[in-house]
Design a protein around this nucleic acid. Structure first.
Length: 790
DNA sequence: CCGATACGCATTTTT
DNA sequence: TGCGTATCGG
């Protein structure tokens, strides 16, 4: 299976793939085959003497890592692909940190705090310090601390930084450095790291232990980074630590799509990459394979208005395509109707599926209007961006138990479940334990085990309750290495009374909680089963935990068979493509967001965001704005976004009576005068109501919000058998004893594949199967779930 | 210890 | 407007 790089890639892709003399920067315009370059480059390296484990490929999302891995597996085979170090920054670094935990004073079982955990810990610290919560808002403090960490500033560095102090003074929060310091220590005490810590500690590990750095930088002979425009200073610095010596680094990205600065991403990393690695070879991928010429040119004319960027000339050789349609609506409601009508029209005229449409907005709050418009016309849709599965209360509760069992020092988990289900341990007791723990610089769990030793003054009955709790948790700890994740997990859910609590009555919300818990349990079963199939027994609870703590992954939009219109924010649309895209709410103070204020940098980022929105479209793109809109319960007036004027009118089809380029300012002024004069305020603006509005029958909504659930790779495709899946260990699958080479089978997870090899007999029989979509896999026949189809 | 009510607040969210 | 948190009363 050899790859013909010359014919399968265009010239610039080919150059980028085959260059391995030194550092390279690949500027990949929207839709220019960025992932293609990355996967081919890795395949190329593998063909040219690099071992899989000597290649490190970093991405930002699990999804990107998974997709890339699958594509590489198809090119070079699953066996070699599986030894690649490919994953998100956070997952790769957590893997390294678990292995080297003792260097930095953690154990390899450390917990990873999500944003909620860390916010909650910050909140308690603020309270304990007696600071005013109105001034010290946990969210604000958290983001300032996060910002410090993203810049690799430790509490010591922070305390010594005059700049940090002055900045804190300016917002009247001089105590932030103390909060930061305490927060840092408390996390250590809890054997826990937040997301940012995974980067900070990796950096510190490499900085303070050169022998460790040497080990890893010698192992990773080539480092590749995807979406480099989204890296923050910490990530950039770690990549530099690893590659400073070898200079074997290839970063891929598009500065025009840098839209995550609010999370610490620094566009300068990509803009000044060539300064950091002076011998960088730059490759530009400028051919767009996704969109019509009109869409590409319109997008170019927009992004041209940004100062800070790497100049490039993206072009398309697809058909010219139609101009970008601009719609004006009188109200947000009418905007919804216009979009729904247009979808209906395009479906009628061009035969599009619902799945060919996406409605993209700047803020999640805008989704409701479109939901209602689509529902009125019984058009199916799906909305992205709710709470992820792991954010749900009942799931967090269950997982808090898992966490405490794996790492008893986990303070947040402790607080969450010490009195859930209710066991008579109230706020007072927890307060006493917390302060004793702080005074003695030990964890809450340590105090709980010996309250008297740490001078906790409690009643006898409370003492008994605490010890009962301790024994309960300890009994699970005993089983940690003896039972697999699924067995121990179900055990915990049953014996702690979680199940009881949820089944106490049949209220609808309890029913849904129950379903969620069931899904979690099934997920754990599948998690173990999948690994067992691959010949990996003894999957422990800690394995499950460390896998899921870095997943936000929602049931991703792969379900292309169900035809639904997609509704999402522009941010979440990055990386996706749709035949028809509506970018809605194109108004001043909305898109661009009012938060951008007068900061040129922020405004440029808003413009890039708009660039991302437009470049999602393959065939048609539409922009719309409303003159009035309900916000925060009030009617607001808006004027068309300045970005509409950034696009060359040549590529636009403007509403008849509007000629934006000429009259936007005038009209905005006119509007303002009307408002300021109180002319309009007294009479609420007429909501236009097109004929279609009221004549449509209300119909029962068949649409559903996509409720994010277990990540796909933990999940088994539902079987026809009912939900009572027996535990893994007792499910020898029937009748696959004698598969033969050449047979076609269908696996529940991997899909259709052909048996190409069978080794061993009886319980140890192992088949190598070539899956159409998942490449080659070795499966233990004893556990594999599939059926023979031919 | 839970429920009702009040208050305040409000982009975007890869991990 | 509408949600999440804070506080008080039974």
């Amino acid at each position: 299976m050899s790859i013909n790089y010359k014919t399968e890639l265009n010239e610039s892709q080919f150059q980028a793939v085959t260059y391995d003399q030194g550092p390279s920067l690949v500027i990949a315009g929207a839709g220019s085959g960025k992932t293609r370059v990355l996967t081919y480059k890795i395949a190329y390296l593998l063909e040219n003497g690099y071992q899989p484990w000597s290649i490190l490929a970093l991405t930002f999302t699990n999804k990107a890592a998974r997709e890339m891995k699958e594509r590489i597996a198809k090119q070079v085979g699953t066996e070699r692909a599986r030894y690649l170090w490919m994953g998100t920054f956070h997952s790769i670094f957590s893997r390294i940190l678990r292995a080297e935990a003792t260097y930095i004073g953690f154990t390899s079982q450390f917990t990873i705090y999500d944003a909620t955990d860390s916010k909650s810990m910050i909140r308690s610290i603020i309270k304990e310090m007696g600071l005013d919560e109105k001034t010290y808002k946990p969210g604000t403090v958290q983001s300032r601390i996060s910002n410090a960490k993203n810049h690799l500033i430790t509490p010591t560095g922070y305390a010594a930084s005059r700049e940090a102090y002055e900045s804190d003074m300016a917002v009247r929060m001089p105590a932030i450095r103390d909060i930061y310091n305490r927060y840092w220590e408390r996390c250590r005490q809890s054997n826990a790291m937040d997301f940012d810590d995974l980067l900070v500690y990796t950096y510190l590990l490499f900085r303070d232990f050169p022998e460790v750095l040497a080990r890893y930088s010698e192992q990773f002979r080539y480092v590749l980074v995807d979406e480099y425009q989204d890296t923050n200073y910490a990530q950039h610095s770690i990549v530099l630590q690893l590659t400073k010596e070898s200079q074997k680094v290839c970063v891929v990205g598009d500065d025009a799509q840098s839209i995550y600065s609010f999370r610490g991403a620094n566009i300068d990393n990509i803009l000044y990459f060539t300064k950091v690695y002076p011998n960088t070879q730059v490759f530009k991928l400028e051919q767009n394979y996704r969109s019509t010429q009109t869409i590409v040119r319109a997008a170019n004319s927009l992004i041209e208005k940004n100062e800070r960027q790497i100049r490039k000339e993206v072009f398309s050789e697809k058909e010219k395509g139609e101009p970008i349609g601009v719609f004006q609506a009188y109200s947000d409601v009418e905007e919804g109707e216009i979009v729904a009508n247009k979808i209906a029209e395009l479906r009628r005229k061009n035969g599009y599926e619902y799945a060919d449409f996406a409605i993209l907005y700047r803020t999640n709050a805008q989704s409701r209007i479109f939901e209602e418009a689509l529902r009125k016309r019984t058009m199916p849709y799906k909305i992205y961006g709710g709470l992820s599965f792991y954010q749900r209360k009942e799931i967090k509760d269950a997982i808090a138990y898992f966490r405490l069992v794996v790492n008893p020092n986990d303070e947040e988990a402790f607080k969450r479940i010490i009195n859930y289900p209710a066991r008579g341990i109230g706020a007072t007791t927890i307060g006493k334990i917390t302060s004793a723990a702080n005074d003695n610089e030990v964890s809450l769990w340590t105090v709980l085990c010996e309250p008297l030793k740490y001078g906790v003054n409690i009643a006898k009955s409370t003492h008994t309750k605490l010890q009962d709790f301790r024994m309960l948790v300890e009994s699970f700890i005993t089983d940690l290495s003896g039972k697999n994740a699924y067995e121990l997990g179900t055990n915990i859910i049953r014996r702690t009374g979680i199940i009881n609590d949820i089944c106490s009555d049949n209220s609808p919300e309890n029913l849904s909680r129950k379903e969620n818990i069931e899904e979690l349990v099934n997920g754990m079963n599948d998690f173990c089963a999948l690994r067992l199939e691959e010949g990996n027994p003894n999957i422990l609870l800690s394995d499950f935990l460390s896998e899921i703590s870095l997943l936000t992954d929602e049931e991703s939009g792969q379900t292309d068979d169900d035809a639904k219109v997609t509704l999402m924010t522009v941010h979440s649309a990055k990386g996706l493509e749709f035949k028809n895209v509506f970018v809605v709410g194109m108004e001043e103070n909305l898109f661009p967001s009012s938060m951008a204020g007068d900061s040129p940098r922020a405004m440029e980022e808003e413009r890039r965001l708009f660039y991302v929105a437009i470049t999602r479209a393959e065939e048609h793109c539409f922009l719309s704005y409303a003159k009035t809109r309900f916000r925060y319960g009030k009617m607001e007036f808006g004027s068309p976004s300045r970005f509409l004027r950034d696009i060359d009118t040549h590529y636009l089809s403007l509403p008849h009576e509007e000629r934006i380029n000429r009259s936007v300012n005038e009209r905005a002024d006119h509007f303002r005068r009307e408002i300021e004069g109180g002319f309009i305020r007294s009479t609420p603006p007429q909501l236009s109501s097109p004929s279609s509005y009221s004549t449509f029958q209300k119909s029962k909504d068949k649409e559903q919000i996509i409720s994010p659930s277990l990540p796909r790779h933990l999940k088994r495709i539902p079987t026809t058998e009912n939900e009572n899946q027996p535990p893994v260990s007792s499910t020898p699958s029937t009748s696959h004893r004698n598969v033969r080479i050449g047979q076609i089978i269908e696996h529940e997870r991997f899909g259709v594949g052909e048996v190409i090899k069978v080794d061993g007999i009886g319980d140890n029989a192992k088949a190598t199967i070539h899956f159409k979509n998942a490449g080659n896999k070795q499966l233990l026949l004893r556990f594999a779930r599939f059926k023979v189809i031919e």
